[in-house]
Design a binder for these strands. Structure first.
Ligand code: FES
Ligand code: FES
Lengths: 143, 143
DNA sequence: TCTTAAATATGACGAATATCATGTTTTTCG
DNA sequence: CGAAAAACATGATATTCGTCATATTTAAGA
């Protein structure tokens, strides 16, 4: 459903939101174990996210990644769009350019509503709200 | 959302359901244009589907592909499972093995219900019903 | 029976994605 | 100021997925 890169990126951001802060930055290599992904790859993804202001970073000794208040207001959809591109998610299921809600393809009626719901939810829930869920025990982010 | 192979396969099956029959079989190469996919690739996919009894085929002159009544009772989910494998669709969004509806990952609450709905719809609508929609003008399958 | 037309089976090639490696820049600290 | 530690930038390699090519089998028709 999501690309592997997106999954890594989402997990990375959520992990940072949960465990990092300005005073306690986390390095790329220390995300490798909890996220279960190769360190250099995570580094590359985080840099891409940093370039788009999804995460904050500082170089040098005691540097690393974290999320500031602005970053915490971002949502999952933005991560996906940065990593996978704009329309991987929004296009027709059969990649038929000619069709839309007025001219639906045969699958549209089966999944269209749910897809819109997913997109809406992904766009309208902030990272901050997601980690609040974890902190309250409504969801888990296992290592 | 689906792999490109799945899309081709779904389009192929729907096209056959709509335009082919025992008396009027369609060859792989004649699907290339309407489906907008390379002919050899479609052939490969159809053979895979035929092996799993999703479509019917006969060799030799005047041979080709079509759907019999049994094939028409199949659903889209079966196509996806044949082409992409069993669990591409059912697994956790973050590929966390440890989590499920009881121990949901942070994204589960955002999309879980919709995903179940999609799966249910894909499993419980037959090819026959989908092409009936097209015939009645409720959906379109453009060339 | 022999030729021909189709699916089938298998594998080679190419492109996209994921992974790894190297060097450069920035910042902290002695 | 100099050394080290981190992100940053770029590109090389590997793996997966999509595409193409070739040879084999089966069935129809002359
Ligand atoms: S028109 Fe194809 S999914 Fe909406
Ligand atoms: S537990 Fe991750 S999507 Fe359901």
């Amino acid at each position: 459903m999501f690309s592997r890169s997106s999954k890594y990126a989402i997990k990375g951001v959520l992990y940072l939101a949960l465990h990092a802060s300005v005073e306690n930055k986390i390095q790329a290599k220390d995300l490798s174990a909890p996220i279960n992904a190769p360190a250099p790859y995570i580094a590359k993804l985080l840099q891409e996210l940093a370039r788009h202001n999804m995460v904050s970073s500082v170089k040098g000794p005691h540097g690393g990644f974290y999320l500031d208040e602005v970053n915490l207001q971002m949502n999952i959809m933005q991560i996906i769009e940065i990593i996978d591109g704009e329309d991987k998610f929004r296009s027709c299921l059969l990649s038929l350019e000619q069709c839309n809600s007025e001219n639906p393809c045969p699958l549209h009626n089966l999944v269209g509503d749910q897809k819109l719901g997913v997109i809406h939810n992904l766009e309208n829930t902030t990272i901050k709200e997601l980690v609040a869920d974890v902190k309250q025990g409504n969801s888990i982010l296992p290592l």
